[in-house]
Design a protein around this nucleic acid. Sequence first.
DNA 1: GTACAAGTTCAAGTTAACTTGAAGTCAAGT
DNA 2: ACTTGACTTCAAGTTAACTTGAACTTGTAC
Lengths: 157, 157
Amino acid sequence: MCFSRGVSDLLTIGEVSRRSGVAASALRFYEQRELIDSERPGSGHRRYPRTVLRRIAFIVFAQRVGLTLEEIGVELAKLPRDRAPGRRDWSRLSSGWEARIDRQIAELGRLKAGLTECIGCGCLSLDRCKLANPGDRVAGLGPGPRFWLGDTRRTDG
Amino acid sequence: MCFSRGVSDLLTIGEVSRRSGVAASALRFYEQRELIDSERPGSGHRRYPRTVLRRIAFIVFAQRVGLTLEEIGVELAKLPRDRAPGRRDWSRLSSGWEARIDRQIAELGRLKAGLTECIGCGCLSLDRCKLANPGDRVAGLGPGPRFWLGDTRRTDG
DNA sequence: GTACAAGTTCAAGTTAACTTGAAGTCAAGT
DNA sequence: ACTTGACTTCAAGTTAACTTGAACTTGTAC
């Protein structure tokens, strides 16, 4: 419980974890995936500059929006390496998120409308209701492992 | 019953798979999880009554709505065992789905509003923005993976 | 100087919902 | 009878995003 680090610019992994709400194991995992990085002065213990917090914030936000860590890595790679990323840089990366959320909302709306229709009329059946058909599906939507629900297999016929 | 058409009433697993769009392996898996069942007359091959299609439809829909197979199993267990489930039975089971979808939409709406605010003002930071950590869902959700940060909130208040 | 908290690596485990593979059986057409 | 395709079981693999555990080292408070 020592907060005597006021002078130093660098944060330990525990401090970063506490400040970000992201577990230390997750931070090591992110580093392994090259989403963040750290210095190792002397002891081998990780030290992070404060800017890592913003990077972590980006990762957490992006996950909420539905990006995978791989996609997030691609986005992060677009940041300038020669200078500290500014507000505009971050903003550019997240510019597509609103549209993405809108699409998710729209898809849920269609699902809801379809449910009302299908259950209201009692035709809860795969023959009749296009709702469950893979033609109209959207992967990565909402909760649940969409990977397995999507059309991994061709369903022609 | 009286005017039975014999075995032609029963479907093979391949037929059910084709009609439902659900892979045969998934059907076996569902049976193992006791979400559906089958007869085994003679050969050991599964034979399904047509009513299984409606049951499968329910499973697929429920997944789209975001229920896990375990939750779906609980729901299906509420169906009457002494008679064939009717429209009302199915409808009762899915009565909460619309509200559930509405909650998901509302949450996405909040996310979007928060994004506009946070990115617009450039405060993309975990310190300031409550968005990334609504309640305490990000930190300390207990063991196991925090899948997608979107679903692990069975404990919502 | 000695606890003990906090850090390290690495491999393996967790979760959901399946899929894949191996090795064998059954059914239908010719 | 033979061939082909559909079916069977069972165990193990897949995916993402981490977590957990073991064995060990470093940092610091007293």
